[in-house]
Design a protein around this nucleic acid. Structure first.
Length: 270
DNA sequence: CAGATATGACAAC
DNA sequence: TTGTCCTATCTGG
C-alpha cells in the first residue's frame, strides 16, 4: 500500500519502536549486506518520511533510505524475531522489537549530501508541515501537462500516488486530462487542502478512504464497500461500475503507463 | 501450480 | 511509450 500516507505512518511506527535505540541490522537475503554492516550496532537517532521515501537517521551521519516501490513491505513485532522466510532484504532488531523489509525498490545507506540531493529533487509533500502549495502551483499553473500527470509527478507533489490522484480529481470534479493552466491558484489550493486532509486520514487509518460520509445508503450499496487495496473509493479500480454520485459507468483509461479512472459526467472534459 | 496482478520509478527507444 | 526491476498474493485451471 505504498503511497505517501503509508510511508509517513511507517516513519511514526519506526520512530516509536527504534528511535534512541541501538539496533542490530543484517540482510538475510544478502542484497543489503554492505549497508547492513555499516549500520549494525549503531543508534537510530530519528525517522522521517519525505513523499514516498522513508529515512532512518543513524548516529554517525548515516541514513538508511528505503523506497518501497510497488511491492515493498515492512513487518514488525516484539522479539523474539521469526526465522527469516522468503526474500528478506533487511532485518533490524532492538532489544525489544524486530523489523523486516522485503521487496523494496531502494534500500541503501546515504551520506548527508546524498540525503540533501534526494530532498532537493522531491516536490511538495502534503503530509509535511514545511510544504508550500504555491511552490507546487508554480510548476502547474503555466503548462499544458494534465493534472493527473502533475499529481503523479514526485517533483511536483511528493507522496501522491495512483489512488489519491484519481480520487482527488473525482472529488474536485476535474477530468484527469485537464491541463494545469486551466485551474487558478485558489482552485489548486482547494484540491491541495483536500488531498492533504485525505492523506492525513490515511496516515491515521492505514488505508485510503475517499468517499464522503454523507453518501446515500443506496449509492453505498451499489459500491463494493472495500476495495482490495483496503479502502472505500469513488473511481479507483471501479471501471464499468456505476458512479456513486450520478450512476454513470466509471471509465478506465491510461496516462503515462498508469491506470486512470474517472466519471465522464461528474468530471467533464473542458 | 502457472500466470496475472499490485498503491512505483527509471532507463532506453 | 515500452521494458525492467523488486516480491508476495490472488486467480483460474
Amino acid at each position: 500500500m505504498p503511497e505517501g500516507h503509508t510511508i509517513h505512518r511507517l516513519a511514526g511506527i519506526h520512530r516509536e519502536l527504534f528511535a534512541g535505540r541501538v539496533v542490530a541490522v543484517d540482510s538475510p537475503q544478502g542484497r543489503f549486506a554492505d549497508g547492513a554492516t555499516l549500520l549494525d550496532g549503531r543508534r537510530v537517532a530519528d525517522t522521517e518520511a519525505y513523499g514516498k521515501h522513508l529515512l532512518h537517521h543513524f548516529d554517525g551521519e548515516l541514513t538508511l533510505h528505503v523506497h518501497l516501490g510497488l511491492y515493498g513491505k515492512f513487518a514488525d513485532g516484539p522479539r523474539p524475531a521469526p526465522d527469516p522466510v522468503g526474500q528478506l532484504r533487511m532485518r533490524m532488531m532492538s532489544d525489544a522489537h524486530w523489523l523486516e523489509l522485503r521487496g523494496p525498490t531502494a534500500c541503501e545507506v546515504l551520506t548527508p549530501p546524498e540525503v540533501a540531493a534526494l530532498r532537493a529533487r522531491l516536490g511538495q509533500d502534503p503530509l509535511r508541515d514545511d510544504a508550500d502549495p504555491l511552490l507546487a502551483y508554480g510548476k502547474i499553473g503555466r503548462g499544458s501537462k494534465p493534472l493527473f500527470a502533475l499529481l503523479m509527478d514526485q517533483t511536483v507533489v511528493a507522496g501522491c500516488g495512483l489512488i489519491y490522484a484519481n480520487e482527488v480529481l473525482f472529488r474536485a470534479g476535474l477530468a484527469p486530462t485537464t491541463p494545469g493552466r486551466a485551474i487558478s491558484f485558489s482552485r489548486w489550493q482547494e484540491m491541495w487542502d483536500d488531498l492533504r486532509a485525505l492523506m492525513k486520514e490515511g496516515v491515521v487509518r492505514g488505508r485510503i478512504d475517499t468517499v464522503h460520509s454523507d453518501h446515500t445508503p443506496e449509492a453505498m450499496r451499489r459500491a463494493p464497500r472495500v476495495d482490495r487495496h483496503g479502502g472505500e473509493v469513488y473511481v479507483y479500480r471501479r471501471p464499468g461500475q456505476p458512479c456513486l454520485v450520478c450512476g454513470t459507468a466509471i471509465v478506465r483509461g491510461s496516462m503515462a503507463g498508469r491506470n486512470l479512472y474517472w466519471c465522464p459526467v461528474c468530471q467533464p472534459s473542458t
